[in-house]
Write a protein that binds this DNA or RNA. Structure first.
Lengths: 189, 189
DNA sequence: GTCGGGGTAGACAGATCTGTCTACCCGACC
DNA sequence: GGTCGGGTAGACAGATCTGTCTACCCCGAC
Protein backbone atom coordinates (compact mmCIF):
# COMPACT_ATOMS: atom_id res chain seq x y z
CA UNK A 1 0.00 0.00 0.00
CA UNK A 2 1.34 3.40 -0.95
CA UNK A 3 2.70 5.34 2.01
CA UNK A 4 0.42 8.23 1.30
CA UNK A 5 -2.81 6.31 1.41
CA UNK A 6 -1.87 4.19 4.40
CA UNK A 7 -4.76 4.43 6.81
CA UNK A 8 -4.03 5.62 10.29
CA UNK A 9 -5.77 7.56 13.02
CA UNK A 10 -2.93 10.09 13.07
CA UNK A 11 -3.21 10.59 9.33
CA UNK A 12 -6.93 11.21 9.61
CA UNK A 13 -6.40 13.76 12.33
CA UNK A 14 -3.84 15.59 10.22
CA UNK A 15 -6.14 15.64 7.21
CA UNK A 16 -9.15 16.79 9.20
CA UNK A 17 -7.16 19.62 10.73
CA UNK A 18 -5.74 20.59 7.35
CA UNK A 19 -9.22 20.58 5.87
CA UNK A 20 -10.48 22.97 8.50
CA UNK A 21 -7.49 25.32 8.55
CA UNK A 22 -6.71 25.42 4.84
CA UNK A 23 -10.28 26.21 3.95
CA UNK A 24 -10.77 28.82 6.62
CA UNK A 25 -7.49 30.72 6.24
CA UNK A 26 -6.03 29.80 2.87
CA UNK A 27 -3.28 27.35 2.10
CA UNK A 28 -0.22 29.54 2.31
CA UNK A 29 -1.39 31.24 5.49
CA UNK A 30 -1.40 28.01 7.43
CA UNK A 31 1.97 26.58 8.32
CA UNK A 32 2.78 22.93 8.75
CA UNK A 33 3.70 23.64 12.36
CA UNK A 34 0.19 24.81 13.12
CA UNK A 35 -1.42 21.78 11.56
CA UNK A 36 0.92 19.55 13.53
CA UNK A 37 0.14 21.35 16.77
CA UNK A 38 -3.62 21.40 16.30
CA UNK A 39 -3.87 17.81 15.16
CA UNK A 40 -1.89 16.68 18.19
CA UNK A 41 0.65 14.74 16.23
CA UNK A 42 4.44 14.58 16.25
CA UNK A 43 6.36 16.29 13.50
CA UNK A 44 8.03 13.05 12.44
CA UNK A 45 4.61 11.43 12.11
CA UNK A 46 3.44 14.19 9.87
CA UNK A 47 6.38 13.85 7.52
CA UNK A 48 5.98 10.07 7.53
CA UNK A 49 2.50 10.39 6.04
CA UNK A 50 3.07 13.43 3.86
CA UNK A 51 6.49 13.89 2.24
CA UNK A 52 5.88 17.62 2.03
CA UNK A 53 3.27 20.29 2.48
CA UNK A 54 2.22 20.14 -1.15
CA UNK A 55 1.29 16.48 -0.78
CA UNK A 56 -0.95 17.41 2.11
CA UNK A 57 -2.58 20.13 0.06
CA UNK A 58 -3.36 17.69 -2.73
CA UNK A 59 -4.82 15.21 -0.24
CA UNK A 60 -6.88 18.04 1.19
CA UNK A 61 -8.23 18.76 -2.27
CA UNK A 62 -9.00 15.06 -2.77
CA UNK A 63 -11.09 15.22 0.37
CA UNK A 64 -12.90 18.33 -0.83
CA UNK A 65 -13.52 16.72 -4.20
CA UNK A 66 -15.19 13.73 -2.60
CA UNK A 67 -17.37 15.89 -0.40
CA UNK A 68 -18.46 18.40 -3.01
CA UNK A 69 -19.08 15.88 -5.76
CA UNK A 70 -21.23 13.91 -3.35
CA UNK A 71 -23.25 16.97 -2.45
CA UNK A 72 -23.83 17.81 -6.10
CA UNK A 73 -24.95 14.26 -6.85
CA UNK A 74 -27.22 14.16 -3.82
CA UNK A 75 -28.86 17.45 -4.74
CA UNK A 76 -29.37 16.28 -8.31
CA UNK A 77 -30.80 12.95 -7.17
CA UNK A 78 -33.19 14.72 -4.81
CA UNK A 79 -34.76 16.45 -7.80
CA UNK A 80 -36.16 13.19 -9.09
CA UNK A 81 -35.45 11.03 -12.13
CA UNK A 82 -35.81 13.68 -14.84
CA UNK A 83 -32.33 14.73 -16.04
CA UNK A 84 -33.53 18.26 -16.75
CA UNK A 85 -34.82 18.58 -13.21
CA UNK A 86 -31.53 17.19 -11.95
CA UNK A 87 -29.52 19.80 -13.87
CA UNK A 88 -31.48 22.47 -12.05
CA UNK A 89 -31.70 20.62 -8.75
CA UNK A 90 -27.96 20.34 -8.35
CA UNK A 91 -27.93 24.07 -7.62
CA UNK A 92 -29.52 23.30 -4.27
CA UNK A 93 -26.08 22.06 -3.24
CA UNK A 94 -24.84 25.58 -3.92
CA UNK A 95 -27.54 27.09 -1.72
CA UNK A 96 -26.70 24.73 1.10
CA UNK A 97 -22.98 25.36 0.78
CA UNK A 98 -23.31 29.15 0.78
CA UNK A 99 -25.45 29.06 3.87
CA UNK A 100 -22.99 27.01 5.83
CA UNK A 101 -21.20 28.80 8.63
CA UNK A 102 -17.67 29.79 7.70
CA UNK A 103 -18.40 29.46 4.00
CA UNK A 104 -15.50 30.92 2.07
CA UNK A 105 -16.02 30.01 -1.56
CA UNK A 106 -14.72 27.13 -3.63
CA UNK A 107 -11.76 25.43 -2.01
CA UNK A 108 -10.33 24.55 -5.42
CA UNK A 109 -10.55 28.03 -6.88
CA UNK A 110 -9.06 29.43 -3.69
CA UNK A 111 -6.20 26.94 -3.70
CA UNK A 112 -5.49 27.40 -7.40
CA UNK A 113 -5.26 31.14 -6.82
CA UNK A 114 -2.23 30.48 -4.65
CA UNK A 115 -0.40 28.17 -7.03
CA UNK A 116 0.83 28.64 -10.54
CA UNK A 117 -0.07 26.54 -13.55
CA UNK A 118 1.90 23.32 -13.74
CA UNK A 119 2.00 22.70 -10.00
CA UNK A 120 0.32 19.63 -8.55
CA UNK A 121 -2.22 21.77 -6.72
CA UNK A 122 -3.21 23.61 -9.86
CA UNK A 123 -3.44 20.38 -11.82
CA UNK A 124 -5.65 18.85 -9.15
CA UNK A 125 -8.00 21.81 -9.43
CA UNK A 126 -8.21 21.52 -13.20
CA UNK A 127 -8.93 17.80 -12.85
CA UNK A 128 -11.73 18.49 -10.39
CA UNK A 129 -13.36 21.09 -12.57
CA UNK A 130 -13.09 18.77 -15.57
CA UNK A 131 -14.67 15.93 -13.60
CA UNK A 132 -17.60 18.03 -12.48
CA UNK A 133 -18.17 19.38 -15.96
CA UNK A 134 -17.97 15.86 -17.36
CA UNK A 135 -20.62 14.68 -14.96
CA UNK A 136 -22.87 17.64 -15.80
CA UNK A 137 -22.34 16.92 -19.47
CA UNK A 138 -23.59 13.39 -18.91
CA UNK A 139 -26.77 14.77 -17.41
CA UNK A 140 -27.09 17.17 -20.33
CA UNK A 141 -26.82 14.26 -22.77
CA UNK A 142 -29.48 12.36 -20.85
CA UNK A 143 -31.62 15.47 -20.96
CA UNK A 144 -31.40 15.47 -24.74
CA UNK A 145 -29.77 18.88 -24.95
CA UNK A 146 -28.94 20.03 -28.47
CA UNK A 147 -25.41 21.04 -27.42
CA UNK A 148 -24.52 19.14 -24.22
CA UNK A 149 -20.99 20.58 -24.12
CA UNK A 150 -22.21 24.15 -24.21
CA UNK A 151 -24.98 23.50 -21.70
CA UNK A 152 -22.58 21.77 -19.31
CA UNK A 153 -20.15 24.63 -19.56
CA UNK A 154 -22.82 27.27 -19.09
CA UNK A 155 -24.12 25.55 -15.98
CA UNK A 156 -20.67 25.06 -14.46
CA UNK A 157 -19.97 28.71 -15.22
CA UNK A 158 -22.99 29.64 -13.14
CA UNK A 159 -21.92 27.19 -10.47
CA UNK A 160 -18.41 28.60 -10.22
CA UNK A 161 -19.71 32.12 -10.29
CA UNK A 162 -22.15 31.29 -7.52
CA UNK A 163 -19.44 29.64 -5.46
CA UNK A 164 -17.29 32.75 -5.53
CA UNK A 165 -20.06 35.32 -5.26
CA UNK A 166 -21.53 33.46 -2.33
CA UNK A 167 -18.64 34.59 -0.19
CA UNK A 168 -17.89 37.96 -1.78
CA UNK A 169 -21.31 39.35 -1.30
CA UNK A 170 -23.46 40.32 1.63
CA UNK A 171 -26.73 39.63 -0.15
CA UNK A 172 -27.59 35.93 0.03
CA UNK A 173 -29.48 35.63 -3.22
CA UNK A 174 -26.61 34.55 -5.45
CA UNK A 175 -27.54 30.85 -5.27
CA UNK A 176 -31.19 31.61 -5.96
CA UNK A 177 -30.39 33.66 -9.04
CA UNK A 178 -27.95 31.01 -10.19
CA UNK A 179 -30.63 28.36 -9.96
CA UNK A 180 -33.20 30.50 -11.78
CA UNK A 181 -30.72 31.28 -14.53
CA UNK A 182 -29.86 27.61 -14.79
CA UNK A 183 -33.54 26.75 -15.12
CA UNK A 184 -33.89 29.27 -17.96
CA UNK A 185 -30.85 27.89 -19.78
CA UNK A 186 -31.94 24.27 -19.33
CA UNK A 187 -35.43 25.06 -20.58
CA UNK A 188 -33.99 26.74 -23.66
CA UNK A 189 -31.59 23.89 -24.43
CA UNK B 1 -1.78 65.23 -0.03
CA UNK B 2 -2.02 61.85 1.63
CA UNK B 3 1.31 60.05 1.78
CA UNK B 4 -0.12 57.06 0.00
CA UNK B 5 -1.34 58.88 -3.04
CA UNK B 6 1.70 61.12 -3.37
CA UNK B 7 2.82 60.84 -6.98
CA UNK B 8 6.37 59.77 -7.63
CA UNK B 9 8.32 57.84 -10.21
CA UNK B 10 9.53 55.42 -7.55
CA UNK B 11 6.00 54.79 -6.37
CA UNK B 12 4.86 54.05 -9.90
CA UNK B 13 7.69 51.59 -10.37
CA UNK B 14 6.77 49.80 -7.15
CA UNK B 15 3.13 49.60 -8.13
CA UNK B 16 3.87 48.38 -11.65
CA UNK B 17 6.15 45.68 -10.32
CA UNK B 18 3.61 44.66 -7.69
CA UNK B 19 0.91 44.49 -10.32
CA UNK B 20 2.96 42.12 -12.44
CA UNK B 21 4.24 39.90 -9.63
CA UNK B 22 1.11 39.73 -7.49
CA UNK B 23 -1.04 38.78 -10.42
CA UNK B 24 1.35 36.21 -11.82
CA UNK B 25 2.31 34.44 -8.60
CA UNK B 26 -0.28 35.32 -5.99
CA UNK B 27 -0.03 37.87 -3.23
CA UNK B 28 1.42 35.80 -0.42
CA UNK B 29 3.97 34.14 -2.68
CA UNK B 30 5.63 37.42 -3.51
CA UNK B 31 7.68 39.01 -0.76
CA UNK B 32 8.24 42.69 -0.28
CA UNK B 33 11.95 42.11 -0.80
CA UNK B 34 11.37 40.84 -4.29
CA UNK B 35 9.19 43.76 -5.26
CA UNK B 36 11.81 46.12 -3.91
CA UNK B 37 14.58 44.39 -5.83
CA UNK B 38 12.71 44.18 -9.13
CA UNK B 39 11.43 47.72 -9.02
CA UNK B 40 14.94 49.01 -8.37
CA UNK B 41 14.01 50.99 -5.32
CA UNK B 42 15.46 51.30 -1.84
CA UNK B 43 13.72 49.60 1.03
CA UNK B 44 13.23 52.87 2.91
CA UNK B 45 11.58 54.35 -0.16
CA UNK B 46 9.16 51.48 -0.33
CA UNK B 47 8.10 51.86 3.30
CA UNK B 48 7.81 55.61 2.82
CA UNK B 49 5.14 55.14 0.16
CA UNK B 50 3.45 52.06 1.61
CA UNK B 51 3.29 51.68 5.40
CA UNK B 52 3.00 47.93 5.02
CA UNK B 53 2.54 45.17 2.51
CA UNK B 54 -1.23 45.20 2.91
CA UNK B 55 -1.39 48.83 1.81
CA UNK B 56 0.48 47.89 -1.32
CA UNK B 57 -1.94 45.05 -1.98
CA UNK B 58 -4.91 47.38 -1.71
CA UNK B 59 -3.26 49.87 -4.06
CA UNK B 60 -2.62 47.00 -6.45
CA UNK B 61 -6.30 46.14 -6.36
CA UNK B 62 -7.19 49.79 -6.97
CA UNK B 63 -5.09 49.64 -10.10
CA UNK B 64 -6.76 46.42 -11.23
CA UNK B 65 -10.19 47.92 -10.56
CA UNK B 66 -9.46 50.89 -12.79
CA UNK B 67 -8.17 48.70 -15.59
CA UNK B 68 -10.89 46.07 -15.53
CA UNK B 69 -13.77 48.49 -15.11
CA UNK B 70 -12.43 50.43 -18.08
CA UNK B 71 -12.25 47.31 -20.21
CA UNK B 72 -15.82 46.36 -19.33
CA UNK B 73 -17.08 49.85 -20.17
CA UNK B 74 -15.15 49.93 -23.41
CA UNK B 75 -16.48 46.56 -24.50
CA UNK B 76 -20.02 47.62 -23.64
CA UNK B 77 -19.65 50.90 -25.48
CA UNK B 78 -18.31 49.12 -28.55
CA UNK B 79 -21.60 47.23 -28.81
CA UNK B 80 -23.43 50.40 -29.69
CA UNK B 81 -26.07 52.50 -27.94
CA UNK B 82 -28.61 49.75 -27.17
CA UNK B 83 -28.34 48.83 -23.47
CA UNK B 84 -29.30 45.21 -24.20
CA UNK B 85 -26.51 44.94 -26.74
CA UNK B 86 -24.17 46.51 -24.21
CA UNK B 87 -25.07 43.94 -21.56
CA UNK B 88 -24.02 41.24 -23.99
CA UNK B 89 -21.15 43.15 -25.51
CA UNK B 90 -19.34 43.61 -22.20
CA UNK B 91 -18.52 39.90 -22.36
CA UNK B 92 -16.06 40.70 -25.13
CA UNK B 93 -13.86 42.10 -22.38
CA UNK B 94 -13.88 38.61 -20.88
CA UNK B 95 -12.81 37.06 -24.16
CA UNK B 96 -9.97 39.52 -24.54
CA UNK B 97 -8.84 39.03 -20.96
CA UNK B 98 -8.81 35.23 -21.16
CA UNK B 99 -6.78 35.31 -24.33
CA UNK B 100 -4.10 37.52 -22.86
CA UNK B 101 -0.78 35.86 -22.22
CA UNK B 102 -0.25 35.00 -18.59
CA UNK B 103 -3.94 35.20 -17.86
CA UNK B 104 -4.57 33.81 -14.40
CA UNK B 105 -8.16 34.59 -13.52
CA UNK B 106 -9.70 37.47 -11.60
CA UNK B 107 -7.13 39.34 -9.53
CA UNK B 108 -9.78 40.18 -6.94
CA UNK B 109 -11.05 36.66 -6.48
CA UNK B 110 -7.49 35.41 -6.28
CA UNK B 111 -6.52 37.99 -3.71
CA UNK B 112 -9.65 37.47 -1.62
CA UNK B 113 -8.87 33.75 -1.54
CA UNK B 114 -5.73 34.59 0.42
CA UNK B 115 -7.32 36.92 2.95
CA UNK B 116 -10.09 36.40 5.44
CA UNK B 117 -13.28 38.39 5.71
CA UNK B 118 -12.84 41.67 7.53
CA UNK B 119 -9.38 42.39 6.16
CA UNK B 120 -8.80 45.43 3.97
CA UNK B 121 -7.99 43.25 0.99
CA UNK B 122 -11.19 41.28 1.32
CA UNK B 123 -13.22 44.45 1.77
CA UNK B 124 -11.66 45.95 -1.34
CA UNK B 125 -12.70 42.90 -3.31
CA UNK B 126 -16.27 43.09 -2.08
CA UNK B 127 -16.37 46.78 -2.97
CA UNK B 128 -15.13 46.06 -6.48
CA UNK B 129 -17.68 43.33 -7.09
CA UNK B 130 -20.43 45.57 -5.76
CA UNK B 131 -19.33 48.41 -8.03
CA UNK B 132 -19.32 46.20 -11.12
CA UNK B 133 -22.69 44.75 -10.28
CA UNK B 134 -24.06 48.24 -9.66
CA UNK B 135 -22.90 49.37 -13.06
CA UNK B 136 -24.42 46.32 -14.74
CA UNK B 137 -27.63 46.94 -12.85
CA UNK B 138 -27.73 50.44 -14.33
CA UNK B 139 -27.50 48.98 -17.81
CA UNK B 140 -30.23 46.49 -16.91
CA UNK B 141 -32.47 49.33 -15.81
CA UNK B 142 -31.81 51.17 -19.06
CA UNK B 143 -32.59 47.98 -20.91
CA UNK B 144 -35.99 47.88 -19.27
CA UNK B 145 -35.44 44.54 -17.58
CA UNK B 146 -38.31 43.31 -15.44
CA UNK B 147 -35.98 42.50 -12.56
CA UNK B 148 -32.76 44.52 -13.00
CA UNK B 149 -31.26 43.21 -9.76
CA UNK B 150 -31.67 39.59 -10.74
CA UNK B 151 -30.42 40.20 -14.27
CA UNK B 152 -27.38 42.09 -13.01
CA UNK B 153 -26.57 39.33 -10.60
CA UNK B 154 -27.05 36.60 -13.17
CA UNK B 155 -24.75 38.35 -15.61
CA UNK B 156 -22.04 39.02 -13.02
CA UNK B 157 -22.32 35.38 -11.99
CA UNK B 158 -21.52 34.40 -15.56
CA UNK B 159 -18.74 36.96 -15.64
CA UNK B 160 -17.12 35.69 -12.45
CA UNK B 161 -17.54 32.10 -13.54
CA UNK B 162 -15.94 32.92 -16.87
CA UNK B 163 -13.08 34.73 -15.20
CA UNK B 164 -12.19 31.72 -13.09
CA UNK B 165 -12.91 29.05 -15.70
CA UNK B 166 -10.84 30.92 -18.21
CA UNK B 167 -7.71 29.94 -16.34
CA UNK B 168 -8.76 26.58 -14.95
CA UNK B 169 -9.55 25.06 -18.25
CA UNK B 170 -7.64 24.03 -21.33
CA UNK B 171 -10.57 24.58 -23.69
CA UNK B 172 -10.85 28.24 -24.65
CA UNK B 173 -14.59 28.40 -25.16
CA UNK B 174 -15.60 29.55 -21.69
CA UNK B 175 -15.93 33.21 -22.71
CA UNK B 176 -17.92 32.28 -25.80
CA UNK B 177 -20.38 30.19 -23.84
CA UNK B 178 -20.61 32.90 -21.20
CA UNK B 179 -21.54 35.46 -23.85
CA UNK B 180 -24.11 33.17 -25.47
CA UNK B 181 -25.68 32.40 -22.11
CA UNK B 182 -25.75 36.10 -21.31
CA UNK B 183 -27.48 36.80 -24.61
CA UNK B 184 -30.12 34.20 -23.78
CA UNK B 185 -30.70 35.65 -20.32
CA UNK B 186 -30.85 39.22 -21.59
CA UNK B 187 -33.30 38.25 -24.32
CA UNK B 188 -35.54 36.55 -21.76
CA UNK B 189 -35.43 39.48 -19.33
C1' DG C 1 25.25 78.39 0.34
C1' DT C 2 22.60 76.02 3.21
C1' DC C 3 18.92 73.18 4.25
C1' DG C 4 15.38 69.85 3.56
C1' DG C 5 13.10 66.23 1.08
C1' DG C 6 13.24 62.33 -1.73
C1' DG C 7 16.05 58.73 -2.91
C1' DT C 8 19.89 54.94 -2.28
C1' DA C 9 22.32 51.12 0.01
C1' DG C 10 22.29 47.72 3.07
C1' DA C 11 22.78 45.91 7.88
C1' DC C 12 19.88 44.20 11.32
C1' DA C 13 16.17 42.21 14.38
C1' DG C 14 12.68 39.08 15.23
C1' DA C 15 9.39 36.09 13.62
C1' DT C 16 8.05 32.18 10.92
C1' DC C 17 8.37 28.47 7.68
C1' DT C 18 9.75 23.86 5.86
C1' DG C 19 12.06 19.95 6.63
C1' DT C 20 15.63 16.77 9.23
C1' DC C 21 17.32 14.38 12.99
C1' DT C 22 17.95 12.10 17.51
C1' DA C 23 16.03 9.76 21.32
C1' DC C 24 12.52 7.63 23.50
C1' DC C 25 7.98 4.96 24.22
C1' DC C 26 4.67 1.29 23.75
C1' DG C 27 2.07 -2.45 22.09
C1' DA C 28 1.55 -6.34 18.91
C1' DC C 29 3.29 -10.25 17.16
C1' DC C 30 6.66 -14.03 16.76
C1' DG D 1 11.27 -12.22 25.90
C1' DG D 2 12.73 -9.81 21.92
C1' DT D 3 11.99 -7.22 17.88
C1' DC D 4 9.78 -4.03 14.95
C1' DG D 5 6.61 -0.48 13.45
C1' DG D 6 4.07 3.48 14.50
C1' DG D 7 3.91 7.17 17.42
C1' DT D 8 5.80 11.10 20.65
C1' DA D 9 8.72 15.07 21.92
C1' DG D 10 11.40 18.54 20.64
C1' DA D 11 15.96 20.49 19.20
C1' DC D 12 17.95 22.19 15.15
C1' DA D 13 19.28 24.11 10.50
C1' DG D 14 18.61 27.13 6.86
C1' DA D 15 15.78 29.94 4.31
C1' DT D 16 12.64 33.72 4.00
C1' DC D 17 9.58 37.30 5.50
C1' DT D 18 8.26 41.95 7.30
C1' DG D 19 9.68 45.97 9.06
C1' DT D 20 13.31 49.35 11.28
C1' DC D 21 17.30 51.91 11.34
C1' DT D 22 21.63 54.30 10.15
C1' DA D 23 24.35 56.68 6.90
C1' DC D 24 24.93 58.76 2.77
C1' DC D 25 23.73 61.32 -1.72
C1' DC D 26 21.79 64.74 -4.78
C1' DC D 27 19.12 68.55 -6.25
C1' DG D 28 16.26 72.40 -5.99
C1' DA D 29 14.31 76.25 -3.25
C1' DC D 30 14.95 79.80 -0.33
Amino acid sequence: MSPEARPSAARDRILDTAFRLFYAHGVRSVGVDRIIAESGVAKATFYKHFPGKDDLVVSYLDKVDTAWSGQLRDAAAAAGPDPRAQLVGMFDALTTACRRDGYRGCAFINAAAEYEAGTAVHDRTVAHKDAVRGWVRGLAVDAGARDPDALARALTLLLDGGLTSGTLDAAPDAPTVAKQSAAALVAAA
